[in-house]
Amino acid sequence: KLPPGWEKRMFRSNGTVYYFNHITNASQFERPSG
């Protein structure tokens, strides 16, 4: 389970998975720990 605010997303163009935090508007490719 991801830390609060984080969700898994995917770029439609190339299928790359990334993680987005809707609380802080942060995004990263590494899976957030917590």
Rank of each mutant, 00 (worst) to 15 (best):
R9V: 07
A26G: 06
K1F: 10
E30H: 06
H22V: 15
H22L: 15
P3T: 00
Y18V: 04
R31F: 14
E30N: 05
G15L: 07
R12Y: 11
P3Y: 02
K1Y: 12
N14M: 03
Y19P: 06
N14T: 14
S13M: 04
Y19T: 00
Y19L: 00
G5F: 06
T16R: 12
F20V: 09
R31W: 10
G5C: 07
I23Q: 04
R12W: 09
H22S: 13
N21V: 04
Q28G: 03
Q28K: 02
G5Q: 02
N25G: 15
F11N: 15
G5H: 07
E7W: 05
P3A: 06
M10S: 11
R12N: 14
S33K: 10
P4Y: 11
S13V: 10
V17Y: 12
Q28V: 03
S13R: 09
L2H: 00
E7M: 05
S27A: 12
L2P: 15
R12Q: 14
F29I: 13
S27W: 15
Y18S: 01
H22F: 14
N25E: 07
S33A: 11
S33T: 13
K8I: 13
N25I: 05
G15H: 09
M10D: 05
M10I: 15
N21S: 05
S27N: 04
R12T: 15
T24W: 09
M10G: 05
P32I: 01
A26T: 14
Y18M: 04
G34S: 11
R12K: 13
I23V: 10
P32N: 02
R9T: 03
V17P: 08
E7T: 09
T16Y: 12
S27K: 14
R31P: 11
E30G: 08
Y19I: 00
E30F: 02
N21K: 00
W6V: 01
M10N: 09
R9S: 04
S33I: 12
K1G: 10
S13P: 12
A26W: 05
F20P: 09
S33L: 13
A26S: 11
Y19M: 00
R12F: 08
N14Y: 05
E30M: 02
N25F: 07
P4N: 07
A26E: 15
I23W: 04
N14W: 04
